[in-house]
């Protein structure tokens, strides 16, 4: 087990990642898809109004990307702080 200081740094960094990613999560769904949908609808993306596109398509694509970004960031952080799980190959 690594010493407590490293663990608390690990946890703080984790919270930072979560906060930033959830801010993006909020911005694309509640922001672009709901609160600012009318303003964005003035911009067009082919046949889509942009706000409508975020509400019915774009937000979902971003959600998927957010999770995989988090997975990558955390795998790296786990290794850096030596708290990752051993590969036991079973």
């Amino acid at each position: 087990m690594p010493e407590p200081r490293s663990i608390s740094a690990y946890w703080k960094r984790n919270l930072t990642y979560v906060a930033v990613l959830l801010a993006i999560w909020f911005a694309v769904s509640f922001g672009a898809g709901i609160l600012f949908v009318e303003q964005l609808n003035r911009i067009r993306l082919g046949g889509f109004q942009l706000g409508f596109w975020f509400a019915q398509q774009g937000s979902i694509y971003v959600f998927v990307m957010l999770i995989f970004v988090y997975v990558r960031l955390m795998n790296r952080l786990d290794r850096a702080h030596d708290v990752d799980e051993e590969e036991d190959g079973r």
């Binding site: 949908v37 409508f52 019915q56 959600f63």
Partner: peptide, 29 residues
């Protein structure tokens, strides 16, 4: 539902997918 609700139907689209971001970041691990 979406066919009849139009844009308002996006509450289901975002609501039933956005929860997985919360799951992955805040609960599952």
């Amino acid at each position: 539902l979406i066919a009849f609700m139009g844009r308002d139907g996006s509450v289901f689209l975002m609501g039933w997918t956005g929860g997985y971001v919360l799951l992955a970041l805040l609960l599952a691990p």
